[in-house]
Design a protein around this nucleic acid. Structure first.
Lengths: 211, 211
DNA sequence: GCAATCGCTATTGTATACAATATGGCCGGG
DNA sequence: CCCGGCCATATTGTATACAATAGCGATTGC
């Protein structure tokens, strides 16, 4: 989109996903405008977009806050992600190119490399790109948009941070299985693997939070 | 939301879904503002919302048009709807109240009544409310939002109009089966029934369009 | 005659001023 | 002491003016 609007969007999103502002923090348009060096108009647009992504919540009185997530919310998001990302994997299985599979292999090698370290950012970056390639291969713009609102939430980061290396290597194995399914062009296999992958991540998150 | 913004949203949406403007028609902000009797600001907000619902498409140069749907687009939307609405039905099966089931029965009686006529609007209204109750019973705000963008597209209306009474009575039967599944609290049954319901509607649409 | 470029115009993006409205505190009554 | 209603103020909603930019046509050179 346009410059100022994009800038405000990126900056505010970063503030939320980066943990700069904790859940429940009020987001006042004027304040954000000053922070981003733009006027309220593009800030308002950015807030609406972030609201659609569930990163911002609006009160009855139309005030904006950093979204806070109940345990039920998280479960709901993971459930939807499991369904939609499973569907994406099924579509990708019959549509992904040889280059796409190569890219997935390379990214999973990057995941493997991060297993030996505690570099959460590195793992998350590789993981994100891996899922992005699958989503791209699914060739469904609407699916992509819906999932875009669901993934890369603050919750994903917290899961990885708390679960640590165990999470890394589990993901590595599951990604490898997914690649196998793609090579076999087996949509059912790919779907099951991806759905299981997400649901396992959910339980890892739930366990880490209860502890 | 606020008054002017909501007004613009409703009016423009009506223009699109009601067939007033055909796909590809340019939507100029100033013109719409004049039509709705508001300024460009709320019109812009409305256009962004409609864009998120895929009713409005934006060109590279940021101009807005009434969205046009390719056959692939329609298939993709129906596929997503089948998945998500099936999931909604599964959730609803274990959550719906006795009152909810009563409401569904009443609405399906309304559908039955419309079977004897060619009153498409009456059928569509009852059908829409029926699905809305299921969605409400699913108790998943995010799911509701996602499906909101998918249902009640112009395409639904066209399907019903072309398919006519046959579509009405098929829906009647399938809705009845869904109610049975709800009474049995059988999530799997409910999901399968709903998914089949949507997919059948899709093929009805495709057949009507090919003809 | 064709094509490419330049400039005008239509349209959208942004800023700001003003209006409407919710919020939170304050005061009065119970 | 608590509750409820009212008022000041903080915040959002809307309108309008201005800036930037894309689209489109005319004009000119080849």
């Amino acid at each position: 989109m346009s410059k100022a609007s994009d800038l405000a969007y990126s900056r505010i999103r970063q503030g939320i996903t980066g943990g700069e502002w904790s859940p429940g923090t009020p987001l006042r348009e004027e304040e954000l405008a000053a922070l981003c060096g733009v006027s309220r108009t593009p800030v308002r647009e950015a807030l609406r977009r972030l609201e659609a992504e569930y990163l911002v919540r609006r009160s009855e009185g139309a005030r904006s806050y950093v979204a806070d997530w109940s345990a039920d919310d998280v479960a709901e998001m993971f459930a939807l992600r499991a369904i939609l990302e499973g569907h994406a994997a099924a579509r990708a299985a019959t549509r992904i190119t040889a280059e796409g599979i190569l890219a997935l292999r390379a990214l999973n090698e990057e995941v493997r490399a991060s297993c030996g370290t505690d570099d959460t950012d590195r793992f998350l970056a590789a993981n994100r790109q891996f899922h992005a390639i699958v989503l791209e291969a699914a060739q469904s713009p609407r699916l992509a948009q819906m999932l875009g609102a669901l993934v890369e939430q603050p919750v994903v980061r917290r899961t990885a941070q708390r679960y640590g290396r165990g999470e890394f290597s589990r993901s590595l194995t599951e990604h490898a299985a997914l690649i196998e399914a793609f090579e076999a062009r087996d949509a059912q296999w790919a779907q099951s693997t991806m759905t299981g992958h997400i649901r396992r991540a959910f339980h890892a998150f739930a366990a880490a939070n209860d502890a």
